[in-house]
Write a protein that binds this DNA or RNA. Structure first.
Lengths: 124, 124
DNA sequence: GCTTGACCTAGAGTGACTTCAGGGCGGTAG
DNA sequence: CTACCGCCCTGAAGTCACTCTAGGTCAAGC
């Protein structure tokens, strides 16, 4: 699978994928005889994981740490789990922000609708 | 109200508040005789709004546009409402990302727990 | 054989802060 | 009175995570 397909499948940009490889999040990706990257299903699963973690606010350094731990084998299960649990906490915080923003926007939109009607009803 | 209090109340940093004023999101803030900023309740409401919008991914340029429209008066009600509605769409997208990440993490954490037990149960 | 399109690298540019360096003012402890 | 502390000021440099640009390779289609 080449990079454009990997990008489409993982919901990352091709630039971001190259950047992540450069940062060492992914092991160096295999290359075809043309020098182009060939992504394995395993690479793909990593990219999708990175996409989800980043999209919800995990810093790159932390994703790197997680990837390094995964390379280190079964001795790191506990630390890896703890990292994911810490990120679950971040999800909850994000959720709270979304909820707060949603209720504010719902009200403001309602208010604007009222104001627009008022303006429309003005004589003149 | 001075800047540290405004920061605590709006959940922004003092640096971010100064930065937002510099970018013209806020009208120039009143100053005391000591040259320090004095934030009005109105400033505070704007800052809280900006905090909520930024925390959920609205770009600065868009918040600036919204603030400029608000300065322009009632002729801009409709455009302002449409901007907020567009942001409601962003909230939904964020929500989807959080949900996708949450279900992945729930599963991964469950799996790690199983693996940790397995390792713990090994002889030797 | 020439163009088109997807890929390559290295490096510059961007958005939204954050940190730093250097300095002022007001209160209080010595 | 002055030394220090804490909070504030400005302008500029630094950071994070991309994103875009310039210049180049290569296989395939006309």
């Amino acid at each position: 699978m080449k990079i454009a397909e990997a990008a489409a499948a993982s919901d990352l940009s091709v630039d971001t994928i190259r950047f992540y490889e450069g940062e060492g999040l992914l092991d160096p990706v295999a290359r075809g005889s043309d020098g182009h990257r060939r992504f394995s299903p395993r690479d793909l699963r990593w990219l999708s994981l990175f996409q989800k973690l980043r999209a919800t606010g995990m810093p790159l350094a932390e994703m790197k740490r997680y990837a390094d731990l995964a390379r280190a084998g079964e001795a790191t299960y506990t630390e890896r789990r703890e990292m994911l649990e810490a990120h679950q906490g971040r999800l909850a915080a994000q959720q709270a922000k979304i909820d707060a923003c949603r209720s504010l926007l719902d009200e403001k939109v309602r208010i604007y609708r009222g104001l627009e009607e008022e303006v429309a009803g003005k004589p003149g």
